[in-house]
Amino acid sequence: MNRRIISTRHTPGLFLVCLLLLWCSAAALAQSAGQSAKSTTPVSIRGTHLLGFESAKNNANGTLSIQEDALQFQKDGKPTEQVKIASVQDIFLGEQSKQVGGTAMTLGKAAVPFGGGRAVSLFAHKNYDTLALEYVDSNGGMHGAIFQLDKGQAEILRNELVAKGAHVSESANEPVKQSNAEVSSESK
């Protein structure tokens, strides 16, 4: 009788310890799997080239990817534009809210009677990340390029670039929100 009482008192403790060990090992496994996946999978993100790359058109959709030591942007079926990661001097993250649908949507909204298009505009916007790069060419000339990416993607790309050797200044670490507040600032 006494033995049974003792065994029932110890079982929940053992069970908890086992659970804890299992959870720890599962977490460790998941982390190592994530790390290995991170290190082997090349980053490839869909985005829009807003400006900067000379051979790519402004506002062109394409794929931003990191291949070995270069960041490259490829528009479907077009030649690739690439920048050596070592030449990247700074990376800035930002956020912006944009109206979706382009010109067609704008015209459509204008055609809606009684100002209904304005109401549509209230909901027809989307938040994007912006990734701005500063890099130098072989002559030392400074270049800039800006990309628009889906929310959350810019930080992934920035981290990957930094891991591959891109320089980032301290001031560039905080994302800058651009468009939601109408703030005026003036230099004195």
């Binding site: 809210s97 109206q99 209230l122 916007h125 005026s184």
Partner: peptide
């Protein structure tokens, strides 16, 4: 010298 951050949505509305 001066910058006013606008809003595309506010312009549209």
């Amino acid at each position: 010298q001066k910058y006013t951050a606008g809003s595309e949505t506010r312009r549209a509305v």
